[in-house]
């Protein structure tokens, strides 16, 4: 990993953009910035970064914010990865960008090194779950342990996935999760990616109902 990861920062607050740029370390190179939905779509298409740091709330477009940027950049999705970044803790904000294709979610209060770490992880193709996002997932899928769940079953989390989610919600890093469960970090990443996929693909009606019902967590 000698080459720094190319990143586009999409956020409507210039102060926040410049602050974030200063916080990210040398493993990341900022190649573009955007402040509205239209700018973002154009810049992303033009520079094709490895990772887009995407604010959930953005002016412009049809008012869809970060989600709209994602849906309008679907063609680039496999190559360009999106990491949602928001001050909002609202379930509908978080879950909607994830379902639109973002590979992870971090809050804006996260420190520079944390965000850098998350960017690198997303660039590798892994998912980034904050404790809060893990909490959403547990809330949405239910915490009851289910024994044998087939991998392609989208409505449920396997017992292992549940355990991983729970540890992440408790504030464990991937490394700590791996240590706690006596598995490798790579396996943890696999589990998290599987959960992300389920979150994106399931059309379990409880999920949408849950997202509509709850606005806090």
């Amino acid at each position: 990993m000698s080459e720094p990861v190319s990143v586009v920062i999409v956020d409507d607050h210039t102060i926040f953009r410049s602050g974030l740029k200063a916080d990210l370390d040398e493993r990341v190179r900022v190649v573009g910035e955007a402040g509205t939905v239209e700018e973002a779509v154009a810049v992303i298409e033009q520079v094709e970064p490895q990772v887009v740091l995407l604010d959930v709330h953005l002016p412009g477009g049809l008012g869809g914010g970060g989600r709209e940027v994602l849906t309008r950049s679907t063609a680039l999705l496999p190559r360009v990865r999106f990491l949602a970044l928001s001050v909002s803790d609202a379930a509908e904000d978080v879950v909607s960008v994830i379902r639109a294709g973002a590979r992870g979610y971090v809050t804006k209060t996260a420190s520079g090194p944390e965000i850098t770490e998350a960017v690198l992880r997303v660039a590798e193709g892994d998912a980034v779950f904050s404790p809060r996002l893990a909490g959403f997932v547990l809330d949405a899928f239910g915490t009851a342990a289910v024994s044998d769940v087939a991998d392609d079953e989208l409505d449920r989390l396997s017992a292992r996935e549940l355990e991983v989610m729970r540890l992440i919600a408790r504030g464990y890093s991937y490394k700590e999760v791996a240590k706690e469960l006596f598995i490798s970090v790579k396996t943890v990443e696999t589990h998290v990616s599987a959960v992300l996929r389920k979150l994106q693909l399931t059309n379990r009606h409880e999920l949408s109902r849950w997202a509509a019902d709850r606005r806090i967590w």
Binding site: G135, L138, T143, A144, R166, R170, G171
Partner: peptide, 19 residues
């Protein structure tokens, strides 16, 4: 550093983790 609190209330128990 940050303190993480996780609470899970299920059918038969409440767990709280403070890390």
């Amino acid at each position: 550093g940050p303190v993480s609190v996780y609470a899970e209330a299920s059918r038969d128990a409440i767990d709280v983790f403070v890390k």
